[in-house]
């Protein structure tokens, strides 16, 4: 009797193991399917986003071309002309003049001040009273 019960338990355990195995396989399969579905969905999302990205890049290219064109000399001249401006040839140029400073002179003591003494005295009084800083800076030694 005991042997029969044990055999029955064993038989049940064998079915149990089989169910468990099948269940595990089913769970793994379902898990795999769920993951695969997610991956596929993600793939399609990425494709859609890539498509959007391409369109945005195309739009960016257009904007860049517009921006570059706005700075192009042809466009600048056209807009200037519309604003009533036009390129003119300068009627005269500032002619170069001889430089007063002797660049060949050795570095050292500055040239002596040739301002007359009376003018220096007047300047000192005026500067002291008026406080003209530029003049003070120029004559202070």
């Amino acid at each position: 009797m005991a042997g029969a019960v044990a055999a029955e338990r064993l038989r049940l355990n064998m079915f149990g193991h089989a169910y468990m195995a099948v269940g595990a396989v089913v769970i793994v399969l379902l898990f795999y399917l769920a993951i695969a579905a997610q991956i596929t969905q993600a793939s399609y999302d990425i494709t859609r986003l890539q498509d959007q990205q391409r369109q945005l890049i195309a739009e960016q290219d257009q904007l860049r071309y517009q921006e570059v064109t706005l700075h192009a000399p042809a466009q600048v001249q056209q807009q200037a002309a519309q604003s009533g401006m036009q390129r003119v040839v300068p009627s005269s140029y500032v002619q170069g003049t001889e430089v007063a400073v002797d660049l060949e002179a050795p570095v050292g003591a500055s040239a002596s001040d040739t301002t007359p003494l009376w003018l220096r005295a007047v300047a000192l009084v005026v500067n002291t009273v008026g406080g003209t800083r530029d003049v003070q800076a120029a004559t202070k030694h």
Partner: peptide
């Protein structure tokens, strides 16, 4: 590519 010729990016 899938049957609809869409790219499976993560494949």
């Amino acid at each position: 590519r899938d049957l609809s010729n869409r790219e499976i990016v993560l494949g």
